[in-house]
Amino acid sequence: MVIMEPEQWDLTVSSRHKLLDFKLRELIRYRDLILMFFWRDFVTVYKQTVLGPLWYIISPLCSTLVYAFAFGNIAGIGTDGIPSLLFYYGGTMLWTYFSTCLNSASGIFLANADTFGKVYFPRLAVPIATTFSSLFKMLIQFAMLMVFLVYFIATGSPVRPSASALLFPLMLLWLGALGTGVGMIFSALTTKYRDLSHVLALGLQLAMYITPVVYPLSQVPENFRIYFYFNPVSAPMELFRIWFYGVGTVPNEMIMISLVSTAVIVFVGLILFYQTERTFMDVI
């Protein structure tokens, strides 16, 4: 009998685990799986539909119409002088990106229980893939927004994109990480406390109205603004309008708070996610 040195094993699984072991190398080995999940999300949703991916653009356009009517025309909330189409479409696009990242990450354990119960693969592959799916949808919508933007600039509207707009990919990372991070926290907790999925559905619906999506921050009375510092989604929303339309209000402190809380949320989300991954098949 050959006695093996511990380092000769390819895999060791024990009842104890390191809190900060995110197994990234294994994740990289499974990159083809991430791609397959991403591709599956995209393909299966639009099989047997007539309009296919066009729905990505139709839905934000419909929301834009309704928001412009309800908040612009009826409630009379200003848009900082940004044309309604650009203002509401941009807001909807970003909010949808954030909330889809959050939603799809939050349901991971419950939605994939059948697969997770039969095969091992790094579970983090799933939220990564869903985040890429949300990103992909958003980029299609963004391409459409660029068409609108060019049109409005050409027809002399007072919108001025700045060079900072080139940082947009970083903003997508920021917003995607924030959404997926919050989603991962919920995904871990909902395996034990199912009520949270109802809380989340309601919360996300309402959260849009306490985030500067359908109104600019400048329309918020001074004494309420303090609350927006605690909503990490506020900063990217306003920043987007500053970068692409040239109008908006965003104090530096708000950006800092948002970035720091994003980092904390992603970190906590990862820890909870890995914790849940280990034993959730026993409690589900």
């Binding site: 093996m4 094993w9 390819d10 895999l11 060791t12 024990s14 009842s15 039969k118 098949m281 026993d282």
Partner: peptide, 19 residues
């Protein structure tokens, strides 16, 4: 198959597992 973790103890593997 690493679907769930042991409560106590451990196991070591040499090679790739397909389950």
């Amino acid at each position: 198959s690493r679907i769930t973790v042991p409560t106590k103890g451990c196991f070591h593997v040499k090679g790739r597992i397909a389950s």
